[in-house]
């Protein structure tokens, strides 16, 4: 039955590879944050699965608790970042800032 857990963890990593597509392509930052958030949660699961595969669960579960407690802090910080900086898309930053500068110069 250990074998099944090994296959499960390999399947998890392959599905994480699929998510990397969204990290590379993801049109905006916040799409990337979503994909990274999912990868972070799944690495908790992978640590526990590895603990079962290596038969050292009592050792590895502490790391998983640390992740489980701290995982949402980074997402929270990234989300709070957008309260001040409302622009999500990086491609429009240069354009809008240039127009804003031009407007102030014109006045």
């Amino acid at each position: 039955m250990i074998n099944i857990f090994t296959w499960a963890s390999i399947l998890l990593i392959v599905l994480m590879l699929m998510l990397v597509y969204r990290i590379i392509v993801g049109p905006t930052v916040i799409d990337r944050i979503v994909a990274v958030n999912v990868i972070g949660t799944k690495s908790i699961v992978l640590i526990v699965l590895m603990g079962i595969i290596f038969d050292r669960l009592a050792m590895f579960v502490d790391i998983a608790i640390g992740y489980g407690l701290l995982n949402f802090i980074a997402s929270l910080a990234a989300a709070k970042y957008f309260k001040k900086h409302h622009r999500i898309d990086s491609k429009n930053i240069t354009a809008t800032e240039h127009t804003a500068k031009g407007a102030t110069n014109g006045h």
């Binding site: 990274v36 990868i39 690495s43 590895f60 790391i63 992740y67």
Partner: peptide, 25 residues
Amino acid sequence: RDLMSSVVVFGAYSFLMCLIWTGMG
């Protein structure tokens, strides 16, 4: 190019490095 995206991707990199070290024991 976008630094915010770079930081976010770096977070995922750190998660996976932790997994590799866990695998090494």
